[in-house]
Amino acid sequence: MSVALVLAVAFVAGLIGAMSGMGGGVVLIPVLTLLGVDIKHAIAVSIVSVIATSSGSASAYVRDHLTNLKVAMFLEMFTMLGALAGAAITVVSGTRVLFLLFGCVLLVSWAVLWFRRREQWSPVAEQDAFSRWLELEWRYPDAATGRTVEYRATRAWLGGPLMFGAGVVAGLLGIGAGALKVLIHDLVMGMPPKVSTTTSNLIIGVTALAGTSVYLSAGLIDPGLAAPVILGVTVGAFLGTRILVRLSNEAVRRVFLCVLGVLGVEMIVRGLRGGS
């Protein structure tokens, strides 16, 4: 397989991943396996590139003060443990299972995107005692109105364990699993959408690092594949976030829904056929 081809695939995956907010892995891994890369190697190399894309975008969000560091620090304990467990499962499991699981996660993401509610947010009125103890109230500057919005995150006692699950998915399949994390921030913890996406980005860095360390010691990270993937995905993601501003959300969403649906079905079919 030529380096130019991998570079191109990684670039497109990074571009689509950033524009849809789903991350590069969900496109990268299925396409790499179609090109003949073993699924475990594809997963391992993807999670390394996730460190680059999430850290790159998190760096800007954190400096704009959109991220809640305390929420991130609390939740990443759970995602980190989840990712270690997930990656350890992948190392020993059969490829067939991985194809099926990956297909299912793609279809669930498809459903989440399809049914996603409008970006509405109503502040949490009552914070539970545990979240208060964790000091999860904070503020962020809202660019649209130019005002500082105060908010309190709640139900951390439920958000934490759920984040363990999101970490398992991330480590198992080599993706950031940002969609799951954002869902937990939004629906369970009542965080404003801006804060929830940007905080998820910061957490993904540590989740991906935990997964990477497992794959590295299992010898699954192929440097020959890693080089073009890291470069392609990162440059693609960088451009994707800039193009996003000029495109309508609806157009991006439609294209991405098609891609996600096709890849999801295709992965499941390959899993059923024996995982090759």
């Binding site: 850290s55 790159g56 998190a58 760096s59 954190v62 400096r63 003060h65 991220t67 560091l69 910061l202």
Partner: peptide
């Protein structure tokens, strides 16, 4: 925030 952002970048 600035320290963390700069490390990542």
């Amino acid at each position: 925030d600035v320290v963390v952002g700069s490390i990542l970048l």
